[in-house]
Write a protein that binds this DNA or RNA. Structure first.
Lengths: 92, 92
DNA sequence: TATGTATTTAGATATTTATCTAAATATCTA
DNA sequence: TAGATATTTAGATAAATATCTAAATACATA
């Protein structure tokens, strides 16, 4: 999950995830939303993939990226723990 | 919320949050759980505070740190959006 | 097969970040 | 008030990261 937290720390990568929330997109379509070279976007996509936050599938000469929810579930669980257990801890 | 995501990207800082989940602790007590100098811990605590992930209160010569849940709620909301809206997006 | 399009890989560079040591500040207490 | 304890601030350094340009790879099609 460390890779996921690291991947999530960059605003551009969170923007990519937000784009993919609506539709799956090719690498090029994603790049069109940024003021950044394609190699830079490719690098970000790679980190998101390493972190299992996105999946990719080759389709002809394009690579289609989509959200992978599995790690999101883990991360939400990690956070929920803070919202539910805090009170409990205080009554030691 | 960007500061929060950045703060959460470091394993030591996440460990600090986990420690505070159980009890509030002084800076020194937190440092005792790490193989790291106190100034380094102080730096991490500062980033957590900037991100509103922890609160601090001076108590004599100690500074007591505790979880601040407000931003956690925002972050969980951000994540939940991925888990609930993904299907919807596909039926464009 | 030659050319164009989509994407990634490689290598360089500038910025950010984590960490350290030394010094400063604040508070307590003898 | 002098000394001890808790914590932070300042400044330095090494490692990590984001970004770029140039080149490589993969696929489609004329």
């Amino acid at each position: 999950m460390n890779d996921a937290f690291k991947a999530l720390s960059d605003p551009s990568r969170r923007k990519i995830l937000n784009l993919l929330k609506k539709n799956e997109l090719s690498a090029g379509e994603i790049a069109d939303h940024f003021n950044m070279t394609k190699p830079s976007i490719s690098h970000h996509l790679n980190l998101l993939k390493q972190a299992n936050l996105v999946d990719s599938e080759k389709k002809g000469q394009q690579i289609i990226y989509s959200i992978n929810t599995s790690v999101f579930e883990d991360v939400v669980t990690w956070f929920m723990d803070f919202l539910t257990k805090e009170e409990k801890g205080q009554m030691k």
